[in-house]
């Protein structure tokens, strides 16, 4: 990976929804380094609030949140901004929920903890369809 490639990419705005603060923050920093403007939401309610005020190119959604069910949030996202691709992140063993999410219009899903490069690749795919 090199910086020039990242710069060629237009600045993508991504909403990262994950209630594990440490993880979300470091992921956001690393993604920012790769030219993506990341907004972190630590809960479902916060994510919905942020999406109301702003528009994002894509969302990365952890399906296991403390306040809301991931699939419910996905449905709300799809209602608020049907064009925005959503990449789901799930724990091992919750493939059923992920598969359900695909039926509700999610772009794809990744197993947690996910490799950053793979995540970046998915985001690029989602935004340049």
């Amino acid at each position: 990976m090199n910086a020039t490639a990242d710069e060629r990419m237009e600045k993508l705005k991504v909403l990262l929804v994950d209630d594990e603060k440490g993880y979300a923050e470091v992921l956001a920093k690393r993604m920012a380094l790769r030219g993506i403007a990341v907004s972190v939401a630590l809960s479902g309610t916060e994510a919905i609030r942020m999406l109301r005020g702003e528009q994002f190119d894509a969302a990365v959604l952890d399906l296991k949140l403390e306040d809301m069910d991931g699939i419910e949030i996905l449905k709300i996202f799809k209602k608020m901004d049907p064009a925005m691709p959503v990449i789901m992140v799930t724990g091992h063993g919750s493939e059923t929920a992920a598969r359900q999410g695909m039926e509700f219009g999610a772009f794809d899903y990744l197993m947690k903890p996910c490799n950053l490069n793979v995540l970046m690749e998915k985001i690029r795919q989602a935004c340049h369809r």
Binding site: E20, Y23, V26, L27, K29, R30, G91, G93, K112, P113
Partner: peptide, 24 residues
């Protein structure tokens, strides 16, 4: 076991990402 595995997953993920951040 599932509970423990889940709980360990997150800190491990953070550690790996922090290491990646240092690498960056």
């Amino acid at each position: 076991a599932a509970g423990i595995a889940h709980e360990i997953n997150n800190p491990v993920a953070i550690m790996v990402e922090e290491a990646g951040w240092i690498e960056d």
